[in-house]
Amino acid sequence: MTVIELSPAKLALAGILVLILSGCAYAARLGITRRMLIAATRTVVQLSLIGIVLEALFSTSSLLWISLMAMAMLLIAGREVTARQKRRLTGGWSFAIGTVSMFVSSFTVAVLTLTVVINPDPWFTPQYAIPLLGMLLGNTMTGVAICLDRLHETTWQQRSVIENRLMLGQTWQEAIGQIRREAVRSGMIPTINAMAAAGIVSLPGMMTGQILAGTTPALAVKYQILIMLMITVGTGFGSMLSVLLASRRLFDKRERLRIDRLVLNNSE
């Protein structure tokens, strides 16, 4: 089974449709024409660039280049996690904790899936490694960002509750336990919901892509199941680890709440 080639002229047809839509949006004074056109241009440019990078990566198949690519993806995800928090930890702590948690969970799960489950030869074959890591990182990133945001915001709002608990001689784990559990839960719920709805409400994107590319639905479904389970594992452990590390940072050695270590994002 081969995939039908998409020529630039065919893509341009889709582009013309977007132009027509933006014309209508302009006429209807929706005020989003400019933003839509810029976003569409970005899609074309960014995806073309990543296409070039991936083509190069696929042709070399060297572990070094694949690792570099993976590190770049990780650092960008770490930056994104920090940017998505309303309040973040001072210094580089939010970035560091987010990146470490995603590294530990996503990379471990990706390597495990590659070496044990899928087992291509070599195990880092980019055709498998890069999409797998990309999907894991993307989902873990969302989970970690949600739970760190939740942890920091709730801690800020409930700082006098936490301190009242400390006054009664509770340890820092007891004093912030409820908030911590709530934060991890909120980070994991989107993936759990996605698993519950898969196949009924939505046809997951990866599976649909594989089917488009000529894979039989039966095989595509198996890959999708694997991916969804691994995403849940990666997001779950990533959320737990990040909340564990960040909540420890909110207290010092004397187990005092250090609310001064939280700042509004976009300030230091």
């Binding site: 006098s160 400390l166 006054m167 009664l168 001689g169 340890t171």
Partner: peptide, 20 residues
């Protein structure tokens, strides 16, 4: 003592109590 051990002995009662 650790922070919690100290606060178990020396008890601060705040002006406004919190309930969780």
């Amino acid at each position: 003592l650790s922070g919690p051990q100290w606060r178990k002995r020396v008890r601060l009662i705040p002006a406004q109590s919190e309930w969780w």
